[in-house]
């Protein structure tokens, strides 16, 4: 968060045109590495395609891609080939999987520069993906809070955060939400004074005494009331989903509810707790075999949890506190 901020021109909504057609973009992120983003992306994709949906998985973890390994496929072409212009047609980048209606665009590790594509490159990519006929497009975003990653996350229809029941992971998840928040504010702001204020507020120990997004919005409203209102509206539409992965106890399961409460009280946003995934030895076994868990062990505890999560995501539902306390 304390890293240097580079000024960039405002980025238009990347998926604007996509949203008009009947497609849904789900983006999976989480701040910290190793929280199971790729595992979740692969299995959510498999679960959706097993329901008969046409699904495209995009490994947007451009620096360190390994979604293809979770699916057990070897990509012949990758996203970087398309971004570089080596391959002109997006069709040629699609890697088929074992399931007929599940396709993958692999990210594969290569150039470091590719991890931060230019805005025009991002736009071209999104336009081409949009031309393809898929019902669900799932983006595996990787770790960190880079601008590219935040823009993809904010532009998606559904932003999903994968959290482990550990302090480090939770801290980074909150940091991610905060970064996404301020990124969106900064994109909205036109007045340089407001922009300055947002940049100042990103530093937790700022001299203005801005501690929470509430404080920031009050400050913005005092400079530009209209912008303050607009930002408030933006906050109301920002509602990320949380998945707690590798739960081992009932306390781990209720963590999602606690995070929902803390986010409501701190950020003033409504986070949806869409479900937890039980810690399950079959997960690493399936990963070692390079097969998605849902195909390898459809009745394993973690696979059942994943199906529940997918059903909640499709129905825009969330977990009920009762369902855990009555166990």
């Amino acid at each position: 968060m304390a890293k240097k901020q580079i000024e960039r021109p405002p980025v238009p909504d990347l998926f604007e045109t996509l949203k008009s057609s009947k497609k849904e973009v789900w983006a999976i992120a989480g701040g910290k590495g190793g929280t199971g983003k790729s595992f979740i992306a692969a299995n959510v994709g498999v679960a959706l395609s097993k329901m008969g949906k046409r699904v495209l998985l995009v490994d947007a973890d451009l620096g360190c891609a390994n979604l293809h390994t979770f699916l057990g496929v070897e990509p012949t072409a990758t996203l970087s080939d398309f971004i570089n212009g080596k391959i002109k047609s997006i069709d040629k980048v699609l890697t088929p999987t074992d399931l007929p209606n599940l396709m993958l665009i692999s990210g594969a590790c290569d150039f470091l520069e590719i991890a931060n594509p230019k805005h025009t490159q991002k736009n071209r990519l999104i336009r081409r993906i949009q031309d393809l006929s898929f019902e669900y497009i799932i983006l595996d975003l990787g770790a960190g809070t880079g601008f590219t990653l935040l823009d993809f996350f904010l532009s998606a229809d559904t932003g999903i955060l994968s959290v482990l029941p550990e302090p480090t992971s939770i801290e980074n998840t909150y940091r991610f939400i905060k970064s996404a928040f301020y990124r969106r504010f900064k994109k909205m702001a036109k007045d340089p004074k407001v922009k300055e204020l947002i940049i100042a507020a990103m530093n937790e120990k700022n001299e203005l005494g801005i501690r929470t997004p509430h404080d920031l919005l009050d400050h913005v409203a005092s400079i530009d009331n209209e912008m303050g209102q607009k930002m408030k509206e933006a906050v109301l539409t920002f509602s990320p989903k949380v998945i707690v992965n590798q739960v081992r106890s009932r306390d781990d399961m209720t963590l999602g509810f606690s995070m929902r409460s803390a986010c409501a009280k701190y950020f003033g946003i409504k986070v949806d707790y869409v479900g937890y995934i039980e810690y399950d030895d079959y997960v690493w076994m399936a990963t070692k075999k390079k097969t998605p868990l849902i195909l390898e062990r459809p009745y394993a505890p973690a696979a059942r949890c994943l199906n529940q999560v997918v059903s909640n995501l499709i129905n825009r539902d969330e977990l009920k506190l009762d369902s855990i306390l009555k166990m």
Partner: peptide
């Protein structure tokens, strides 16, 4: 239930709230 959850969420050192 909501009360019990809230007490856990904001108790000393609770994972979900200490960093905020």
């Amino acid at each position: 239930k909501a009360y019990e959850l809230a007490k856990t969420t904001y108790s000393k050192g609770a994972m979900a709230s200490y960093s905020l």
